[in-house]
Each structure stands twice: as structure tokens, then as C-alpha cells.
Design a protein around this nucleic acid. Structure first.
Length: 580
DNA sequence: GCCGTTTTCGGCCCGACTGTTTTCAGTCG
């Protein structure tokens, strides 16, 4: 039998179904149902085959009987007759047209049925050859922007990493405030505020009593390369670095409504508005409109907005319609971990291996973050690892760590460097250092760096062996994925989490901008299964310690509380945990 | 196709912006 389809592959099938049905002009609510199902599946940390075996498919919000049957057919046969019938009606190239900005399903459908266009290249040729002139809906301006949009689709960048987007948003907001005194307050919203690992565009919110002036200032900033659209209260621009940025200028009295609206997610907002309607309230970025015509409700803060439908404020990182409304209604929202809760970084490198700074410099950087302790975890000597340490060099390093700790103690500084290592997990689950070397260390991070494309069973068994080694305290970047370039190992996350919970092994959220590994859905699942976490920078330079912010956002998206995260614990608690 | 503190049938979030319009459809977020 062929390999079972992954959740991602099945999610893609339902997205294609939705796209195809939209192009065919079929019922919008049916297409929305397929899209919702696809999104729900994409975020599931548990394989669909497992849920199906437990009869739990229809327990997933957005999956009903009909889609559950289609999932079963895909799992059993690797195919779906319904999907094949749809695909036969619309060439794949027509769906490709949807990648062109401002070409939606209606336009793509007409381009296909009326002009026989079945590819972006074909569309470009038609536009350049004047074949669109005189076609209903295609005036000269539309054709001109279409050619520009085709060029954008051909060179389109992938999504931007969270870390880069945060930096871009900060500088953009600073520039806007400096250029326009009419801005009373400005912040970013959208997926950036929700802490998603990659960002499609920047959503900037500005409070002002003079929206026209702010929009004008926004669209004429030096950072702006091109204005896509510009209206009374909204504008969309492209920056020189290729990022798209949207602005909404809003009355201060409606700040909470606009912030809620532009933070999303779309699924969260749709659900929010359904709940509002059930209370006789229509909600938009301009606030509430009581259907009965009653008095307006306050919307200056997001707390006002959620209070209007009887709920406490919900943290942006939770707003994915993945159970946050139910938790809020039941008074069971988690008290999410915060950056200020972090007392230590437990995965840091120095120039003893491939880091760029001395142990002391890294320790001082940790102290500057306000930490009370840190773990120095240089690489073990292993194939492919630069300048990794063997047992002898680790003994030498221990002396330097002891001397530094002694310096801190005699200076009356309460700070402790734990001496550790980031030991390689070999392809079969062994470790690159012998047990007696590991036993002499304060803390051990074990991480996979090579052979990350093993079959799932082998990849899982490899990590399970490492977790069960009594010297291993932390499993570092468990899947090895790199966002946008390497998918990482396929592992049986439930098995890993259960073993980690059994042995007390901490599972890492590696906060490197390209790693964020574990990812947020995995974090939520491993916490459900009783495992504990660490959030570590994996810093190779003092500046990298700031990456921890990304890890905290990821932890929050995974519903993590401070008590779940070992580097929020006091040093004594951590040492007790490791000893046990 | 999904779903239920109005509902197992009949709904399904909401509005800005653009271009081509004699009043609105399509796209986007």
C-alpha cells in the first residue's frame, strides 16, 4: 500500500477543491466549508489517520460527516473521486491564475470560459496582445494593473519570517510617527501581532482624528516604493524591501474595534461576529451596531469589545478559533507565559565551539536580559559540527565556567552558569559523547543535526532513545525544521510527548528565527499530554538572546503557561527537576 | 458542507476600495 497521505497533503486537496468550486461559481457556503476544513486540518498536531481510528474526525470543528468520509477515502485509497471529477472540469493552470493579485475566482473563471486562458503566461500574452480589450470588465486601467500584478506574481517573495517582520514593523511605525504628528498612537496588528511564524504583510493601525492626513503621510513615506490603493481611511503600499503594508487610520474612540478587526484571524473574527449577532449586535471595525437600534457600545479598548459579547479579553496569540471562545466563556483561558517570566536561557553557545563570543560575554548578555542563570551548551565533537568539544575539552571548559561562577559569587552577583553541552543525537538515537562525560555536566541538551529525512518510525525511535537516556535533560529543536527551506523530521509527536512526560525530559521551543521548533500546534499538543518545555535562543552571539521573544510568542500560540516552561522556574526548582 | 443558549432547517461576518459603471461586482483582509 502506498504511503498514507499527510495532513498537509489532505489539507491541500480541500483547498484545491474550494478554489475549483469557486472558479466554477458554485455555492459560496459550500466552498467556505471546504476552506475551513482545510485550515482546521493544516493546524492539527495529530495525524488524521489517528483521529479516524478513534472515530474523532467529526469532533474537529469544521469537519462533518461528508468531509470525514472524503478524508477516509483519501486515507484508504490515496485518491478522492469527487476531487478527480472537479479537477477534470478546470485545468490546474486556471487555479494558478489565482496567484495573481486582484485576480479572484470570478475573473479566473471568466478568463477560462470566455477566452480559454489556462496559465499565467497565457494571461500575460493575452493582455499584451490586446486580446482583453473590449472584454467586459477589462478597461485600460485594469489591463495595465493586470500586467503589473502578473509581474508581481512571477517574482513574488515567500512569506517573511516573524523576526524580520517585527523589525520592519517597528521601524515603519517609528517613521510614521515621526512624519505625522496627527498620529496619536500606532501599532501593528494582523498575523504579526498574533505571533505567527511567517507574515504575509504588515497591518499598521493608527489612532487619529484626522485620518486623511495620516493616510497621506503613510503613502508618502520614504520607505514606500508604490501605492497599491489609498482611500479615506485605508491604504495599501509596497515597501522597497518588497513587503506589503496596510494602514487603517481610526478614531481613538474606535481603537479597540479596529485593533480587534485587524488582528484577526479571519476565522476568529467570523466566529466573534456570529457570537455578536446571537446577542443582537452587528460588529465591524467601526464598532457595534445594535440590530434593534439601541445605544452604541464602547469600543476604545479590546477589553470593551470582548466585554460586549460577555467574554474576557482574549490574547492575540490565541485568536485562531481553535477553542479560545469556549475557554473564554468557561473562564478557562490560560495565563500565558510572558517574556518577563523568563529567568534563564538554557541553550547557548560560545567561541569554544561555533559561537562568536566568549563565555563571559554570553553570560553578561544573559545578565543584561535580567536572567538569574544560563546554560552554556556548546556543541559536542561530531561529524559536520564546527569545532565541537570532546570529553577533554569539556573538562577544560568546566574549569573556566567554575572560575566565572566563582568571580560572580565573590563579587556578590547572584548569577550561575550551568555547564552543559548540546550533544548530537546520532542517526540511530545514540549520543555523540559517552555517559561518563555527560554525567559530569550540570545539564545536557540533545539535538538531531544530521539525517533529518528518516522515515517517521525511524525518526521517532531515534528521538525516543535520546529521551530515555537518563543524562538527557532537554530535547533540542526536535524536528530540525528550518522555516521555508527544510521541513524537518516527521515524528510521532504523541509518542515523543508521552515519553518526555514519563522521563521528565524537557522539550525545547528553539527560538531561532528560522527554527521555532517545536511549532505552536505541537506545543499545544505536548502540553495536553503532560510534557514540560524550555524556550531557548540557541544563541551563537550576544545579540541572539533577543530571539527568545519569538519563542515566547510561539509558546503562547501553543497555550503555554509559565509553569509549563522550565526556564521560568527558579534555579533551585530547575536543579531539582534535573536531579529527579 | 457545517452547525445549533432562537435553529436538525435555514441560515452562514462585514466593509473599504477600485474600476467600469448608468447602480455594482469583484477582490481583499
Amino acid at each position: 500500500m502506498a504511503d498514507t497521505l499527510t495532513n498537509r497533503e489532505i489539507a491541500d486537496v480541500f483547498t484545491t477543491i474550494a478554489d475549483t468550486m469557486e472558479v466554477l461559481g458554485e455555492d459560496v457556503f459550500r466552498t467556505r466549508a471546504y476552506r475551513r476544513a482545510s485550515e482546521a486540518i493544516a493546524d492539527l498536531p495529530v495525524p488524521l489517520a489517528t483521529l479516524r481510528a478513534q472515530g474523532e474526525l467529526i469532533a474537529v470543528p469544521g469537519i462533518g460527516k461528508a468531509i470525514a468520509d472524503k478524508i477516509a477515502e483519501l486515507l484508504d485509497t490515496g485518491q478522492l473521486a469527487f476531487y478527480e471529477r472537479l479537477r477534470a472540469k478546470v485545468p490546474a493552470g486556471v487555479l494558478e491564475l489565482l496567484r495573481v493579485p486582484n485576480v479572484g475566482p470570478r475573473t479566473a473563471g471568466r478568463l477560462y470560459t470566455e477566452l480559454g486562458i489556462t496559465s499565467i503566461a497565457g494571461l500575460k500574452a493575452a493582455a499584451e496582445g490586446g486580446k482583453l480589450n473590449g472584454v467586459k470588465g477589462f478597461g485600460p486601467k485594469t489591463v495595465a494593473t493586470l500586467l503589473r500584478d502578473i509581474a508581481a506574481a512571477e517574482t513574488r517573495d515567500q512569506r517573511t519570517l516573524l523576526f524580520e517582520a517585527l523589525r520592519a514593523a517597528d521601524s515603519f511605525i517609528t517613521a510614521l510617527g515621526a512624519a505625522c504628528p496627527a498620529v496619536q498612537q500606532a501599532t501593528y496588528a494582523g498575523s504579526l501581532r498574533r505571533g505567527r511564524e511567517t507574515i504575509g504583510d504588515l497591518d499598521i493601525l493608527a489612532a487619529t482624528t484626522e485620518p486623511g492626513i495620516v493616510v497621506q503621510a503613510f503613502t508618502t513615506l520614504p520607505l514606500v516604493a508604490r501605492v497599491e490603493s489609498s482611500g479615506r481611511e485605508k491604504a495599501t503600499v509596497f515597501l522597497h524591501n518588497g513587503l506589503q503594508a496596510d494602514l487603517i487610520a481610526i478614531e481613538p474612540a474606535l481603537w479597540g474595534a479596529a485593533l480587534q478587526h485587524f488582528t484577526g484571524s479571519k476565522a476568529h473574527n467570523i466566529r466573534f461576529r456570529e457570537l455578536a449577532l446571537a446577542r443582537g449586535l452587528s460588529f465591524s471595525e467601526h464598532g457595534f451596531k445594535p440590530l434593534s437600534g439601541g445605544a452604541a457600545l464602547p469600543c476604545a479598548t479590546e477589553e470593551d469589545v470582548y466585554a460586549a459579547i460577555g467574554l474576557p479579553w482574549i490574547a492575540p496569540e490565541l485568536r485562531e478559533n481553535q477553542g479560545e471562545f469556549e475557554a473564554a466563556a468557561a473562564g478557562r483561558l490560560p495565563q500565558l507565559v510572558e517574556l518577563d517570566d523568563i529567568r534563564a536561557d538554557l541553550h547557548m553557545h560560545s567561541d569554544w565551539s561555533d559561537g562568536k563570543a566568549s563565555i563571559r560575554a554570553m553570560a553578561e548578555a544573559a545578565r543584561a536580559q535580567g536572567y538569574t542563570h544560563m546554560a552554556l551548551t556548546d556543541h559536542s565533537a561530531f561529524l559536520g559540527i564546527t569545532n565541537g568539544l570532546d570529553g577533554e575539552r569539556l573538562r577544560q571548559q568546566a574549569a573556566e565556567v567554575a572560575a566565572l561562577n566563582s568571580d560572580y559569587a565573590t563579587s556578590g552577583i547572584s548569577f550561575r552558569i550551568l555547564h552543559g553541552v548540546e550533544v548530537d543525537i546520532t542517526a540511530d538515537g545514540g549520543l555523540a559523547l559517552p555517559d561518563d562525560v555527560l554525567a559530569a555536566l550540570d545539564i545536557v541538551v540533545a539535538s538531531p543535526h544530521v539525517k533529518l529525512s528518516q522515515p517517521p518510525e525511524q525518526a521517532t525511535e531515534r528521538l525516543l532513545r535520546a529521551i530515555r537516556n537518563p543524562h538527557v535533560d532537554i530535547l533540542g529543536h526536535p524536528t530540525g525544521r528550518l522555516i521555508g527551506s527544510r521541513p524537518g523530521s516527521e515524528i510521532d509527536l504523541d509518542a515523543i510527548a508521552r515519553a518526555a512526560a514519563d522521563t521528565g525530559t524537557l522539550l525545547e521551543i528553539n527560538a531561532g528565527p528560522e527554527r521555532l521548533d517545536l511549532d505552536a500546534p505541537s506545543v499545544r499538543r505536548v502540553l495536553e499530554l503532560g510534557a514540560k518545555l524550555t524556550i531557548d535562543s540557541d544563541a551563537h552571539h550576544p545579540d541572539n538572546l533577543q530571539w527568545l521573544r519569538l519563542g515566547v510568542l510561539t509558546a503562547r500560540r501553543g497555550w503555554a503557561q509559565a509553569k509549563d516552561v522550565a526556564n521560568t522556574w527558579p534555579l533551585a526548582t530547575l536543579l531539582e527537576w534535573i536531579a529527579a
